[in-house]
Design a protein around this nucleic acid. Structure first.
Lengths: 162, 162
DNA sequence: GAATTTTGTTTGCTCCCCAAACAATCTCCG
DNA sequence: CGGAGATTGTTTGGGGAGCAAACAAAATTC
């Protein structure tokens, strides 16, 4: 009994440890799933030689589908502060994907729009996102995926009307 | 036709705008749900005069259920870099919730444990988390909640084995 | 006992997020 | 018309999350 194979209080825990109540928490499951999905998203784009975050993709889609959008309206749709949006737009604009046009009707606002290159890039990005989505939904049936999206929407609606 | 009630290209969009393909994306729904849940979590704690993030709560539970855990094992369980963990532990330790004990068997590692105040605080936090969970799951039946957690786990398993 | 590996820490960098202040502009109303 | 108030985009300041690289101390391997 000089060298037991598993010390009683040391560091025997191989892979998984006791998560206690966490496994039953919706918020916890949400965080872990989101983190894994984010990692897969990043890896998908990295492998294709592209660089984009999920948030940037959502922003580009929103601008593409709502041309002439103002920064305030976009910030509201993204549920972030308008000051948070500024450096994000700066970066996308510096990459040549997006333009801030002067609004003819309101001198305060900027009318956001994708550049032609932005449109082309978004088409590429969309292909990658679809492949990524296919991968993360691989373990689920089509019905399960639909139900999951629906349940997530219910949670969002109930959590706080953001 | 000098002043149409809704200008054709201006800023008529009242509340919601066109989200295009985003609504069908699992990753997008995940992000939005997570963001709303996070906000509810923060507001729950703020209203109770406590300050804690979901990540900190998860960390405290993990330490409480796995006494003597090392920082590396904890970082692995949280799927973050060990260097990221250091300032988080510093903060919780400065709040008196957690201690880094010297390990008797391994001079390199720290054996993490909650302080008595940490245990008491975690009990308070747990009550708040339960109330929070009840609120975000309010729109779902018990069966739906169970299914949602299960589906989230499947997604995490499929996305990349983090 | 020397070489390698592991652990915790520090430093440096990027990114996300908010709040407060500010100038430019628009709107409202007397 | 014209001033008061509201809105928009920006800047600044602060905090936190995250990674990578480098380092010292300790353990492990050979």
């Amino acid at each position: 009994m000089a060298s037991p194979p598993v010390p009683p209080n040391g560091k025997p825990r191989a892979g998984n440890l006791d998560r206690g109540m966490l496994t039953a928490l919706l918020g916890y499951g949400l965080r872990r799933a989101q983190s894994a999905v984010f990692a897969d998203f990043a890896s998908t784009f990295a492998k294709a030689g592209e660089a984009l975050t999920p948030g940037e993709f959502g922003l580009l889609v929103l601008v593409e589908r709502n041309k002439g959008l103002s920064q305030m309206a976009l910030a509201r749709a993204l549920a972030i502060d308008r000051s948070t949006l500024v450096p994000i737009l700066n970066r996308l604009q510096a990459r040549g994907l997006l333009m801030r046009h002067a609004s003819p009707t309101d001198g305060r606002t900027h009318a956001l729009a994708l550049t032609p290159e932005g449109e082309k890039a978004l088409a590429r990005f969309t292909r990658l996102v679809k492949a990524h989505e296919k991968r993360i939904a691989a373990g689920l049936s089509a019905a399960e995926t639909r139900m999951l999206i629906e349940l997530l929407d219910k949670v969002r609606a109930g959590a706080g009307s953001l």
